[in-house]
Design a protein around this nucleic acid. Structure first.
Lengths: 244, 244
DNA sequence: CGAGCCGTTGAGGGGATTCAAGCTCAGTGG
DNA sequence: CCACTGAGCTTGAATCCCCTCAACGGCTCG
């Protein structure tokens, strides 16, 4: 059955994974669809095809990334735990998607990856991809790092800025804005309408909470569009909001 | 002043951008920090250093990407408009960050990028990066595409699944899950607790809205963990929820 | 059969939205 | 100089949606 769909020169390849890879129905949509059959033949022996049951963990956040995977079947979810302690699912991935790309940078995984349904994967060692891109490796690594940073930020945004009551979301936004101070140590404070667009709340709710934080001496409003934060007060307020 | 910090062989380079690039204080953290001075000298003449005032647009969603930028100073926000018509800010970027990476794939931009504060940028044509990575171009392109897809999904998650009242968020989740049907045309339906973790709501709220959608014949619950959607009813319910 | 997990439904309270009024401030023109 | 205007922000009151707390039913499994 299977061999009838294989190119002739692969029909009696020594390694059994050769047939699995060459016949893979998602290959044309998957990462290694970009490779020709000859290149594929060189690497297929290093690729495993593990399966996971529903609700089993594929990898764990902060764990060193030893593999990147392609999803051949099933649904995978990415989870994070907020400082407040509650679990947030920040993304889903399905057939044809690539997961654990951090491993190509030799980074630790940025999320917990867990099977939602029974899943079939292709497990690819990072060295395999690195071997294929020998030149300008440093620039490419930098580029991939930027991409991963952006993705990490986007997922962190979900976990931090869309979670919990309005006061907590405002505090976390101020914390994030505190990382971009200007020369005078002030932060850029968005218009209330923009805060609403960031945190999914009305301008009235944003205004009420900022006013309250001003009365609590967490923030000093410096209109227009600027403010000064009290780092200790902010940290304390964040801990209080996360504790509850 | 400036020339004193330059390597000798660059001090009298013909193109003025040579000095700007070589002296750039963010260079060691920025994308082209990975390049040596010789490579940098070859490309600097193609890099512009534009500035934007606050609240001006750097690029627009769906516009063909003709450049990728590094942020030298200031804060940039990424915006999307939900189907419902409201504006959502899905990410911020600051000094040292790379924005508009889609352009390296010759894709259109995935978001509106707008300056929050006055910003100083480095504008890099995609051809420059492509010239530097001649071999295995297709695999690298595939890889970058995966990265961008993941980022796009993460930002779309913010815009779609964390916006608006609970009923709307549940509907959008069902719509997303509808893209991963199994062989019987059923979808994987998360446990109520997982729906809560995805949409930032309690299991009771998730259950109430699913029950209501069942009574409205939008969804047929097939416990455990599965369901069947009525595509037309779902679409109609989505439009109704977005209209309001 | 009882224990435990998962899901559903109800009652009550609290927080966010909605609707509305009034404020500051910059720009404009009488 | 000051009235006028409009944008942005603040504050209040009423409403509504969602959360909290609680009880209960179906199901699996020891």
């Amino acid at each position: 059955m299977l061999t009838r769909t294989l190119p002739v020169y692969l029909q009696d390849a020594s390694h059994p994974q050769a047939q699995v890879c060459a016949a893979c129905e998602v290959r044309r949509n998957a990462l290694f669809g970009a490779l020709d059959d000859a290149s594929l033949a060189r690497i297929h022996e290093h690729i495993a095809a593990p399966e996971y049951e529903a609700d089993t963990r594929i990898y764990t956040r902060d764990e060193p990334g030893h593999a990147v995977w392609t999803i051949r079947a099933g649904v995978v979810r990415f989870e994070r735990t907020t400082d407040r302690g509650d679990r947030r699912i920040v993304r889903l991935a399905g057939r044809g998607d690539l997961i654990g790309q951090e491993a190509l940078l030799r980074w630790t995984y940025a999320d917990d990856a867990i099977a939602c349904t029974p899943v079939q994967l292709c497990r690819i060692p990072p060295a395999l991809v690195e071997d294929l891109s020998e030149s300008r490796a440093r620039l490419l690594r930098e580029l991939m790092a930027r991409w991963q940073d952006a993705l990490d930020q986007a997922q962190g945004w979900v976990a931090d800025l869309t979670t919990g009551p309005a006061r907590r979301r405002v505090l976390r936004l101020l914390d994030a804005l505190g990382r971009y101070p200007d020369a005078q140590g002030r932060i850029w404070l968005p218009r209330r309408e923009d805060i609403g667009a960031m945190l999914d709340m009305t301008i009235e709710t944003a205004s009420r909470h900022l006013s309250r934080l001003r009365r609590e001496a967490v923030i000093e409003l410096l209109p227009p569009r600027h403010a000064r934060l009290s780092a200790p007060a902010l940290e304390q307020a964040l801990r209080a909001a996360d504790a509850d």
